[in-house]
Design a protein around this nucleic acid. Structure first.
Length: 721
RNA sequence: GCCACCGUAGCUCAGUCGGCAGAGCAGCGGUUUUGUAAACCGCAGGUCGUCGGUUCGAAUCCGACCGGUGGCUCCA
């Protein structure tokens, strides 16, 4: 058979030769470093065990102990997961293994184990893992036909593995033994591939344990998910741990406190951000920047209230669709409020049968009886025998009640501004923008600093246009988003096109309008030359979207801006414009938010810059610090001059030495620190230092100010000496 | 919402077996008048998240709740 290597050369091998054989033919060093093969044949790409016979003519990439190759790491980590599983089973024999895949930067294994693992157990597990690695046991694959494998698993009494096996493809199921042969050592149902031997695991570390559920189903048994990571070379592991440390040091929650940017106070409410002056100025500057860019592009500002009629959101679909993740409605009547309490009481009734469920349901019934006694019969309530059917009844009843909802989205309000008068095709496109505050009741476990909150401000806008204008509007929206990302130096991004999942019923609107919208999105993305991937099932419920996923300077991904095409809300709200033909037509809406949310965006920027904002965004741009109070008068002169130049300045004339003063300024990430002593006063200069600790020398005051103004105006051009 | 872990001064953290609540930084008052990564002395700062229980005695043990962190699920 002919094996084509990545450089295009072709090796003739005997049938049945393995990746190892190919590597050996190329050179002994390669054979020594090889761990698996990546095979391309018949248009498919699979990774195979090092010693597995190759399928015939194919393209082969030999995977080696290369810490920069994701495929190599994938195999390594998968195997390390097996070693960890074996160690856990050895220490805790009652463990049932569930599922242990490699993930982005490590691996995990889901375990069904009654005793909860703690970080104290990690050392013990790691010690056993280390021993298994030192034993340098082979990973040996064997296969059984389903008819043999299933009874074998059944006998082992592990329902998860049995379930995995039943759902696996193919007639043959594979197992891996960590040992010489079947029956001699730990084994696990596994698709593979694996390292040739445990000794190839160079460095690993258990990182954390957390909860999970079998197949992500919260009704399934709670499992423990034990996370770890592995590398071929200890140095790579060390580097990885250093990066995690770096990420921790950049945590916006810590920096936000240190730099006094924002706080989140439980007395105010979980997930509700208090912007302190220094955080607020960053946000304001970003808002002003975007406002300017939008006004230039024909957007018009609008403002709308923070709440709206429940019926508005019933009509838009937001309320029924996202009811669970909204703050409860403010019903206007006592009846509505009581029924809401009843509904919430019912929702807290445990799903599993038992005395707790019975008791909770009995309490709910009492409340229901009281409601009926006061407000009269509720159709269907008397027949409802389970909490679930009662919820349906009350839910239906509540749909008749009027009330208000904290707005979860701005679009319905903007839609009504559009509807406030008849529109002509000549008016279009209409572009409304608003930094709108929206509220969503995120699950408590989801809240995280500024990046996942319950109240936030969207840099929202809605564009209403004709079908002819759609593509142009999308193009310019994409350009605006790129302008925004460029301005804050988030230039490493990918674009995700979220399409509907045709098998799901969660979407609103006709398949035809979806097809149209998806086609337009594809066209706009295609034209703009963006490097985009399409993902099924990632659309919003009313339309497909383009998401900008940025990578920050330590390679973490964040979803920021979004652009959504919407044929559905115009339909639901019966939006029209009068066309050239003097007949009504349906406009198309674009929802877009380049920042996404100001909270999240600023949170991410804090981490991206590690608190060291570029000059144009820095809460304090310049610090003036004196050597001694002999120079205080000149320092104040300098301060006044900088303030007159509209720079954000602080002055420190305290009696500390210059060392600690500078230290404090640097801790606050102030871009420029001006040291003022008798020499500077005599010369009329300032001694410029940056927050990295570099001294940039002495500048005339005017030259320094000009430099700053230029750097601000260009959003980043550095001061030249 | 679920699972695990955590909650001591404004911040970072110590507090052994259940036996008087601790340090550094920040703050305040003084001394020092200083030339580039933390001068010196002093003072003040606490219902140990909250509530309940066990105990002669609880920061410490137990329970509930609140909050946080990590993950699961979710993310218009």
């Amino acid at each position: 058979m002919n094996i084509t290597l990545p450089d295009g050369s072709v090796l003739a091998m005997d049938a049945g030769a393995s990746t190892y054989d190919v590597a050996g033919k190329i050179g002994p060093r390669l054979a020594g470093a090889a761990i698996a093969g990546k095979v391309q044949a018949d248009g498919q790409e699979i990774i195979v065990d090092l010693h597995a016979p190759l399928p015939g003519d194919c393209k082969l990439t030999i995977l080696t102990t290369d810490d920069t190759n994701p495929d190599s790491l994938h195999v390594l980590r998968h195997s390390t997961a097996h070693v960890m599983a074996e160690a856990v089973c050895e220490l805790f024999p009652q463990t049932k293994l569930v599922y242990g895949p490699p993930v982005e930067d490590g691996f995990y294994y889901d375990l069904d184990l009654d005793r909860s693992l703690t970080p104290d157990d990690f050392e013990k597990i790691e010690a056993v893992m280390q021993r298994i690695i030192q034993e340098d046991r082979p990973f040996v694959r064997y296969e059984l036909p389903r008819s043999e494998a299933l009874p074998k698993l059944e006998k082992e009494g592990n329902r998860y593995k049995l379930d995995n096996a039943e759902r696996a493809d193919g007639d043959m199921l594979s197992f891996y033994v960590t040992g010489e042969s079947r029956g001699q050592g730990f084994e696990d149902l596994c698709r593979g591939p694996h390292l040739p031997r445990t000794g190839r695991i160079g460095a690993f570390k258990l990182r954390q344990v957390s909860g999970s559920h079998y197949r992500g189903d919260v009704n399934e048994k709670a499992l423990q998910r034990l996370y770890g990571t592995a590398f071929f070379k200890p140095k790579a592991l060390k580097e990885h741990l250093r990066q995690l440390e770096e990420a921790r040091a950049r945590d916006h929650r810590a920096i936000g406190r240190e730099l006094d940017l924002f706080s989140i106070d439980p007395e105010v409410g979980s997930g509700l951000v208090l912007w302190h002056p220094k955080g607020a100025i960053v946000r304001m500057l970003l808002e002003n920047f975007l406002k300017f860019e939008m006004l230039l592009r024909g957007y018009r500002p609008v403002y709308s209230p923070n709440i709206g009629q429940l019926n508005l959101y019933r009509r838009s679909g937001h309320y029924p669709y996202y009811r669970d993740s909204q703050f409860p409605p403010l019903y206007e009547t006592d009846r509505g409020r009581t029924l809401l309490s009843l509904l919430q009481t019912l929702e807290r009734v445990p799903a599993h049968a038992g005395p707790q469920r019975d008791e909770a349901f009995a309490r709910a019934r009492q409340l229901a009886d009281a409601a009926v006694a006061v407000w009269g019969e509720i159709p269907g309530l008397a027949d409802a025998e389970t909490p679930e059917t009662m919820i349906t009844v009350i839910d239906r009843e509540l749909q008749q009640e009027d009330g208000y909802l904290l707005k979860p989205m701005n679009c319905p309000h903007h839609v009504h501004i559009y509807k406030s008068q008849p529109r002509s095709y000549r008016d279009l496109p209409i572009r409304y923008f608003e930094f709108g505050n929206v509220y969503r009741y995120e699950q408590s476990g989801e809240l995280s600093g500024m990046v996942r909150v319950r109240g936030f401000t969207q840099d929202d806008a809605h564009l209403f246009c004709t079908p002819d204008q759609l593509l142009d509007e999308m193009r310019s929206t994409i350009q605006l988003t790129l302008t925004v990302l460029d301005a804050v130096n988030l230039t490493d991004y990918r674009v995700r096109v979220g399409l509907r999942d045709p098998d799901s019923s969660k979407y609103t609107g006709s398949p035809e309008s979806w097809d149209q919208a998806e086609e337009k999105i594809r066209a706009a993305v295609g034209e703009s030359g963006l490097n985009a991937t399409e993902e099924r099932g990632e659309a919003a419920f009313y339309g497909p979207k383009i998401d900008f996923v940025v990578r920050d300077c330590i390679k973490r991904e964040w979803q920021l801006g979004t652009i959504q095409v919407d044929y559905n809300l115009p339909e639901r709200f019966d939006l029209t414009y009068i066309g050239r033909d003097n007949r009504p037509h349906r406009p198309i809406m674009i929802h877009r938010a380049p920042f996404g949310s100001l909270e999240r965006f600023v949170g991410i920027l804090i981490e991206h810059f590690a608190g060291a904002f570029p000059l144009w965004l820095a809460p304090i741009q310049v610090a003036v610090v004196t050597i001694s109070d002999k120079s205080e008068a000149y320092a104040r002169e300098v301060y006044d001059a900088l303030v007159r130049a509209a720079l954000r300045v602080e002055v420190d004339v305290s009696s500390d030495k210059i060392g600690p003063k500078k230290h404090r300024c640097r801790a606050l990430k102030i871009p420029y620190i001006l040291v003022i002593g008798e020499q500077e006063a005599a010369e009329g200069t300032v001694n410029v230092n940056d927050r990295e600790g570099r001294s940039l020398g002495n500048f005339s005051l005017q030259k320094f100010v000009d430099g700053c103004l230029l750097e601000i105006a260009t959003r980043g051009k550095k001061l030249e000496s």
